[in-house]
Design a protein around this nucleic acid. Structure first.
Lengths: 354, 354
DNA sequence: TTGAAAGCGCTAACAT
DNA sequence: ATGTTAGCGCTTTCAA
């Protein structure tokens, strides 16, 4: 009997006919509009349920010209925890809000980013969570200015709130940690200064060096696009240079994985022959032996804030009148990474022998 | 001047008025309908571009009652490569097709899964790529029967194509590998038999045991929900049992990570005191020392096939008449994992000393 | 408290 | 080859 519930596609009109009321009443009841007599509303809801009615989100969003049906989630990659953890958390929070998340991968390609952003506004997304590509295009910036945006991990000079790791602070700390152990020859492998987070990390490193009484300009370093391969490459280059460093700090998650591999491949023993500080999610490094001293970032925390931030921004929609935004922008949220010292850092060889 | 391009929201009507043609012509031109005079079509496209027109996907999808605007991507988790790699690849392929991907995380909760699936059909998704939850609900199955679906990693007894790792084969191989080294006390830590892949892996293990002349029923094993914590727990339990095994096979990605950690924490040396075979993406285990013998799965490969499969299914839409599907269903696609022997497997202690 | 009717922005018959 | 005219399924004035 009930099994023949094929693609019947029940709509408001059907419900209205069934119950002898108007589509308007149906709509109101289903949206919890208090103007409907409670008893009637209940009956309508039950009937809708019984007939297996599911509202067409497209029609709804089209009609109510503003809606929370979709938000866009735009990231360079999804197969690294820095992004996937945030994606997971945002999906969860948005879903609880009845909003669907359109996932979009840019692979750090500015053209692709722009194209996909256009498609997203074409889908009338209520807002956007984005980790911008390195070389963001101008039209992209303009687009971003036209709707609620929350950025994370990377900032791209637009006027939108964002959540970021407080990398500068953490990186400085890691240098001081090494210096306290007695290291003076510290090398840095990090991410392009064109990335806002790359720049912040480098600033931190330099500040740490200065605070430790070392000359930042003497420091051997490599700034590369953040990939595992570059992590390996960077280590190989840095360890081949004259005046080999006794300690290496890596500023970037993917770089760190590659770097740790390369260090092991080079045969250098941690921490006897080299001290190593990596960056990222501790889970990545769980298997390495010895455990690595890590600048730990809580991506979960970051994700929560990003999602919540967008939630607030969406609720700011339709400020009744007047141009002044009542909610003061609290500036960027900083998630403070924590330096977790472990077995990969120790005094340098010279010190230990002396 | 051009800077005041506020939220002007150009629509087909505007373009039509500008150019003195009808909205129908605009629509046709923009959709590449050959019925429009090429010159006019070109002019229209240029004007649309110039005015910064972006078609409203919602209106489009609502009007053209069938569309490829959205597909749903439904997975239990996104922060593990088994899923995120597939998500990335699908997003890429779909995007090239002008389709947006709605990401949905079930966290393996059947209720949540059903709810989200309903929301997806409410958004009139053209199809679905899904890795079903463990205890899928009956209404969920019915829903899945009503639209093009491709499943991956896990099968849930619905009539839909899918792509899976050929785990049975690979797991059998790993047992044979250990047996060839001389192991007779082999333990297995795997995933619930309720999961299709858990069942397949266990079948493989048993087959391997039988082929090696060992009694599968004697084998110590634990079948747990696939999490890292359970990986640790399982190892602790198995290594505490009387008649401690000399080799351990782990069937599951997250389990493997936890297991590797627990083995190290237990102080057992690989491969001298214990041989270990893990399962999953080699990248996870890149840092472990010694390198782990791994059943390697190409998630990228799997992802490609899944996305392509859905592409085909979507093109099958609207079979003009007649009920017979012209394209024969090729059955499940199997991606064959590869056993990569490394330093974590060796002859058992007894053998070596003898 | 409810209904009638006008859209939302686009596509697709059906005319011309 | 182009225009006219209905819708798609819902929300939302405006009236009653």
């Amino acid at each position: 009997m009930a099994a023949r519930a094929r693609r019947a596609e029940v709509g408001v009109m059907d419900l209205a006919r069934d119950l002898g009321v108007s589509t308007a009443t149906i709509s109101r009841a289903l949206n919890g509009n208090p103007a409907v007599r409670p008893e009637l509303a209940e009956r309508i809801r039950q009937h809708a349920e019984a007939r297996g009615y599911v509202a067409n989100r497209l029609a709804r969003a089209l009609s109510a010209n503003t809606s929370h049906a979709f938000v866009g989630f735009v990231i360079p990659y999804v197969d690294t925890p820095a992004y996937s953890a945030v994606a997971a958390e945002c999906a969860r929070l948005l879903s609880a809000n009845g909003t669907q998340m359109i996932l979009t991968i840019t692979e750090n390609d500015p053209e692709r980013e722009l194209r996909q952003l256009k498609e997203l506004v074409a889908s009338r997304v209520a807002g956007l969570i984005i980790s911008p590509s390195t070389h963001i295009l101008d039209p992209t910036k303009q687009l971003l200015a036209s709707l609620p945006v929350v950025q994370f991990h990377r900032a791209c000079g637009i006027d939108a709130p964002g959540v970021f790791g407080d990398d500068e602070q953490a990186m400085a700390q890691s240098v001081l940690h090494l210096a306290a152990l007695g290291h003076t020859d510290i090398a840095y492998l990090g991410t392009s200064e064109l990335l806002s987070n790359g720049a912040a990390r480098l600033r931190g490193i330099r500040r740490g060096m200065a605070l430790a009484g070392l000359d930042p300009d003497e420091m051997p370093m490599r700034l590369l696009e953040p990939t595992r391969a570059n992590g390996r490459r960077g280590v190989e280059q840095l360890l081949m240079e004259p005046g080999t460093p006794t300690a290496l700090v890596v500023g970037g998650g993917s770089l760190s994985i590659g770097a740790a591999q390369a260090v092991r491949a080079s045969g250098r023993r941690l921490p006897d022959e080299l001290s190593l500080v990596v960056y990222g999610d501790p889970a990545w490094f769980a298997l390495s032996d010895p455990p690595l001293t890590t600048v730990c970032v809580s991506y979960q925390d970051l994700a929560c804030r990003a999602a919540r931030l967008l939630g607030e921004r969406l609720d700011d929609r339709q400020p009744p009148r007047g141009g002044a935004t009542p909610v003061p922008d609290p500036g960027p949220y900083l998630v403070t990474p924590e330096l977790c010292p472990a077995g990969s850092t120790a005094p340098p060889p010279g010190r230990r022998r002396g």
